[in-house]
Amino acid sequence: MRLDVVAALFMTIASAFVLYGLSYDTRLVEERVHAREELAARLRSDIAVLKAERAHLARPERIETLARAQGMRPATDRQLAQDTAPAGIITGSNPSQ
């Protein structure tokens, strides 16, 4: 058998091994990407559910009840100090001290 035929045969077999190796690596990477995509989809789904749960828990009806239980209520004009009021009233400090 001529040398060039032997070399071509060797190159073919070598290429086949390289290609097989590349194909294997590609499938491995694809599998990893797929796993990541699945994880991302699952996390996206979890985030959507958590967002909905947070919105449900923070709905105004519930927050208002909790706020009122803490003694909070809407601001009124009686909670505002006039700018002519003594500084101590506005800051809460005692000027005599």
């Binding site: 009124t76 004009d77 009686r78 909670q79 505002l80 006039q82």
Partner: peptide, 10 residues
């Protein structure tokens, strides 16, 4: 609110 009738702080 306009401080229309401020008599003091609550």
């Amino acid at each position: 609110p306009k401080a229309s009738a401020v008599a003091g702080l609550e």
